[in-house]
Structure formats: structure tokens, C-alpha cells
Design a binder for these strands. Structure first.
Lengths: 334, 334
DNA sequence: CTACCCGGTGGTATCGATACCATGAAGGCG
DNA sequence: CGCCTTCATGGTATCGATACCACCGGGTAG
């Protein structure tokens, strides 16, 4: 499809409507500044010519790109996908659009993508990681635009952060086990290096040491390929081998918890009677009656929406750390 | 963080390097057109000043936005997320960036987002749906830019399409059941209206009618909330009630298949001995040893990458329908 | 009655990079 | 030795919308 047709310009619309260009601009951007009669004429001309405002030109002359850049770790985890949805929806209400790239959890990739993003002169930047290279920090500082880090709440955000505390979540789950009468509580994690969040959850578990009968932490070695329930099964086996009297297992993720649960059933262990199990994330299946997993729910969309709100409101205080919290959902496994 | 700092302009870089603006432009866009010595000087100036090329200005003067717009149905399904990843990665190699919005499977929303997208003067548009409103069609036709529809292969694409045939996939699964000695094959689906793809899979099943001992199709009524394995359990129950001698169940998705499998185990039915089960999508857990589901694998990232390739190559023939195929993965449930 | 204000509108300069054409220097060939 | 090509570089116009300021007419206050 050769691009034969040229785009209609604002000047042509103005001529058609018998007004000045600037009036067309106002009619489209700020209708209240134009008299109703003129507005109608402009609207008619726009419709007849099929005019679509050229933001590339608008951005240059107004020095407002109406774009927000997002560098997300991955889209292939439901939580980030939900965040991006909340973000786009929220931004759309303010006439902003999202420019997206994925970093694959690699600060180097993030740093490499940053200049390209900044080239668009975005009005704000959203990052889902709090781990940046030196170069990235320099670029961000120099750019002098609002930067929002989502999901984790770094002690010293580049600018501002919206998220929740993985550590507090780990603590909440562990305490839940204690409060429901279990003191021999184990933590089941994975040894994936990129996952600082997982590590924080374990720290949250450790924070409860005083209330537990000794630490029981296991990290299953991650193999290449998808992380499936197999890990959970393997991990539970190890836990029961080392500490046969374990009463509860706090798992680093729902997927792992699911595997642990299946393994427990296979062994005929009564859940939650003899053994309680919890996950993290509240994925699709967690609420399914066959699984009914006790877990932590994070409202990813809400985090994205809140970020959008802050951006639209403008003037984000430096150092802001907005804790959106989490909810512990008790189901049948605890 | 008040935007105190102004962006450095190309002119300042040029002054610093002692060359003309245009030379800076060439040095950054097309280094081979500049002598090595000059290139070094420009590079040095760029580094010292922390210059980042302004694409908003570049887009206007070159009439090339270096942006591709994407309207995806949802990001909260792994397959689309993978497609978006393939797309961004592929486009990045050609210096193109992705502008993203989600339509939530609604053609009306898609049509509403279209003008905003076109306002950026994207060099191409990617849609993951083949269902467009009349207004959307008009806009797309007038815009005269390459439009790629992904995932399904419509008979008459707006311009071009990259995807695979859900119908053929349904047929492949059914035929697989026949070839492994089953003739009493059922189809288990969901009654969700937006899901044309699911319907196509069922049509694929029906296409095999000649080789089957009668049609056995069931659609479980979708309730609000996440689609979990519960549906599969319920559906299998209904199938066995109506046709107790069923030998195989082709499920519309992995999630449903998983539920059916659990239900079968609960009833002590030998899988795959007495009953074979297949899914669709090859989700995370399908390869897990506890599940080991026979299913169809679609390479979403490859579809995205192929789309990027076509866009970068330019000159996409009108009416192109590129079938990326699928792979049937036989595991332990058939 | 005059002076001032304000809503509505248009003219012109401007945003920052790139296209196009011109220029000058270096090198090849008859 | 001079002409023509090629390469490297710069000047200037341009992309399309918006900011800024000016303007006009009518209404209100003094």
C-alpha cells in the first residue's frame, strides 16, 4: 500500500472552515475557548476532510510530547501486564500515550534503551525495576523529568516510587502461619538471581525468626525453561526430608506453592490440617476451588493507575514513596 | 523535580564540536557519511554535553516518526505479551519504537484509540484483532499506512496478516486423537462471546466429523471472574454424563484441559489409557511433569518478530497472509 | 460619554532537526 | 595540466502545530 495519500494539514481544515489555523488548533485542544458556531464549522471541516491532528508537530511547537515512556522488566508476567493496563488507561484519560519497551530484567538493557526513550522527550518515565546502572542514573538525573519506579519501594528512589513492600508481605504470610497456630514454618524459594523481590520476601520471613521454632529455608535450583510446579514439589520434598515436623510452608510464588500442594496431596498429607501452604501473587488459578490457595494479592492495575494519576497531577515530590499495600487472602490451604 | 534544566540542542553540540548542525545530524544518524576525525569530535561533544537527539523534531522534519502503533486485545494473556516482546525487539533493531494501547477485546475501544495512534503518524500499525468497526476501517483506509493484523488470518485482511489458523489447529488435535486410535472424541469449549478464536478451534474439530463417531461438543457457561480449571472439571463431568464412552477430549485451552485432567484423576479414570486429553496454548505449566499436557504451541514471539521484519523491510504486499503455523506437542495425556 | 476589560480571533515567529542544494577540496584520467 | 567526479561539509528553507501578542467589537463601570 504505497503511501500515496498525504495527510491533511490544519491549514487545509482552517481554509475549509473559513477560519485561521490557530482557531482550528483551539477547537481541537481546548473547545471552550472557541465560540459554539465556529466550533461547529471546524468540526464539520474536520469530519469532511478526515483530519487527524499531527502530534509530531504539536509536540515540537508546544514542547509537550504527551508521551510517557515505560521500561518494564517483562510483559510476560501477569502482574506487569496488569500494571501496564492500569497505566495506559489512566494516562489515556489525560491524553497521554505510552511508549513501551522491555528490559528482560537486565539493567544493562535498561540503560541501553533509555536514550531512545528520552529521544521522544517523554513527560515522565516509568520503570518497574529499582536496579539501574551508573550510566542510567546519570541520564535520568540530567533529563530532569519525573521518574516513577513501580513495584518495589527503594529506600532512595531516583525520584519517586509506587509499590508495596515484598518484605512486609513475607512477614505477613509468616505471621499468618504463626497466628493460626504454626511455629515450625519453612520458607521455600528459588535461587534465581535476578529476583530481588523473592529475596525480600524471604527477608520478611526471617524477620519473624523470634516467633518461629528455628529457620527452615530452602531454595530450589532453577533450571532453564519455564518455572513450573515441579520446583515446588521438589522443594517440599527437601523440606520434609530435613525437617519432617514442618507445619507450614511459605512459598515464594503461587506456582511453587501449587507444586508443593500437589506433592503434599500425593503423599497423603492433610492440608491444611497437618501442613499449611501459602503462595504469592494470586495468579489465575489460585482462586480455583481445586487449588484454593492462601496467597498475597497485589493489585497491579491499581499501581499503574496510581502512577498515571501522579503523572497527570504533575509536580511529584522528590523522594515520594507511595505504599499501595497488598492483601493476604486466606483460602483453603492454611 | 522542577524541569529546570533545558535539553541540549543539536546546535549547541555543533558549536562545541566546531562543525555545522547538519554534520552532527549525519554523525548520529548515518556515521558512514562523516569522516572519522569529525565523527570523533562530534562524539566527544555529544558525550560532554549529554546530548540526546530530539526525535520529536526529527519526526517533523524528516516526516518519519520511527514509531509503530500497536493495539492489542489484552496484555494479560501470555501469548500477546510474547508477541509484543517479539515486536519491540524486532523493531528496536531498526530503530523503531512501539506505541501501545489495549482494546480489551472491544472493536469500539479500538476505533476510539485509533485517531490518537494516527496522531503520532506511525509508520505502521499492528492490530491483534481482525474485528474492526466501520469507522475504524474508514480511518485505516484513509491513513494509507501498512496495517498488520496478527494472530488470526482473516480471509480479507485490511492490508496484511501474520498468524496461524485456529481452525487448522483444532483439526490437528482432533486428527491426532483419531490417529492414536480414538474415534469417540469430544470438544470442550467455553461460551465466551468475544472469543472468535475458540469458535474457530471448534470448527476445526467439526471438520473432522467424517472420521468421528458422532459429534460431542459441550460449552461450559462462563461466569464472571478468572477462567480457572473449574470449568474443565465441570465440562468433563457433563461430557461423561452425556457420552460415558468418550475416549478423548479436545479442550479449547490449556486451563480447561488442566481442569478436565484433574477431574479425570479424581474419578480414577486412566489418562491417557481410557481417556486422552489435549489443551491449547502450551502455557507455563503444560510441560510440567505433573501435568505433561498434550497441546498446541504457538510461537507468539515469532509472530511479533515476523511482523517487525515485514515492517522494517517495507513495501508489504496488499492481501499478504503469512501463516506462521503451530506445533502439536504430544505429552503424557494422549 | 469615556475608559477599560474581556471573549473571540488571527498573524507571525518559533520549536529542533533534516532535505535539498551548493560549495570547496581531493583525486583520477586523458 | 586541466577537467570532471567524488567526498565531506555547510547554509537555508522546511516540516505542521502552537505561543505570544495584537486586534476588534461590545459590554460594564465610573
Amino acid at each position: 500500500m504505497a503511501d500515496g495519500r498525504k495527510w491533511v494539514t490544519m491549514g487545509e481544515v482552517a481554509a475549509r472552515a473559513g477560519v485561521g489555523k490557530i482557531t482550528v488548533s483551539r477547537a481541537l485542544r481546548n473547545p471552550s475557548k472557541v465560540s459554539p458556531g465556529t466550533l461547529r464549522k471546524v468540526q464539520a471541516a474536520v469530519d469532511e476532510l478526515g483530519y487527524v491532528l499531527d502530534e509530531t508537530a504539536g509536540a515540537l511547537s508546544s514542547q509537550r510530547s504527551r508521551v510517557v515512556g515505560a521500561l518494564v522488566s517483562t510483559l510476560e508476567e501477569a502482574v506487569f501486564a496488569a500494571t501496564v493496563r492500569g497505566l495506559t488507561e489512566g494516562l489515556a484519560e489525560g491524553g497521554l500515550q505510552l511508549m513501551l519497551s522491555a528490559t528482560q530484567y537486565d539493567p544493562g538493557t535498561e540503560a541501553a534503551l533509555l536514550p531512545t526513550m528520552l529521544g521522544r522527550r517523554p513527560e515522565a518515565l516509568v520503570l518497574t525495576s529499582d536496579d539501574h546502572t551508573e550510566a542510567a542514573h546519570r541520564l535520568l538525573a540530567r533529563a530532569g523529568l519525573p521518574v516513577l519506579e513501580l513495584w518495589e519501594l527503594p529506600k532512595q528512589p531516583v525520584h519517586a516510587a509506587v509499590g508495596f513492600s515484598n518484605r512486609a508481605a513475607g512477614t505477613a504470610l509468616t505471621r499468618h502461619m504463626v497466628e493460626t497456630g504454626r511455629r515450625r514454618v519453612a520458607f521455600l524459594g528459588l535461587d534465581r538471581q535476578h529476583d530481588r523481590r523473592a529475596r525480600l520476601r524471604m527477608e520478611g520471613y526471617r524477620d519473624c525468626a523470634g516467633q518461629l521454632a528455628g529457620e527452615r529455608a530452602v531454595a530450589v535450583k532453577a533450571r532453564p525453561g519455564a518455572v513450573g510446579p515441579d520446583y515446588g514439589a521438589e522443594g517440599l520434598a527437601e523440606i520434609l526430608r530435613r525437617w519432617p515436623d514442618t507445619e507450614a510452608v511459605v512459598c515464594v510464588s503461587d506456582m511453587v506453592a501449587m507444586g508443593a500442594l500437589c506433592e503434599a496431596r500425593r503423599r497423603g498429607i492433610d492440608v491444611p490440617g497437618r501442613l499449611a501452604i501459602s503462595g504469592f501473587g494470586d495468579f489465575d488459578m489460585a482462586q480455583d476451588s481445586a487449588l484454593a490457595l492462601t496467597t498475597i494479592h497485589i493489585d497491579g492495575a491499581a499501581i499503574g493507575r496510581r502512577a498515571a494519576e501522579l503523572i497527570l497531577a504533575g509536580d511529584i515530590p522528590c523522594g515520594l514513596r507511595e505504599d499501595m499495600g497488598f492483601s493476604l487472602i486466606r483460602r483453603a490451604t492454611s
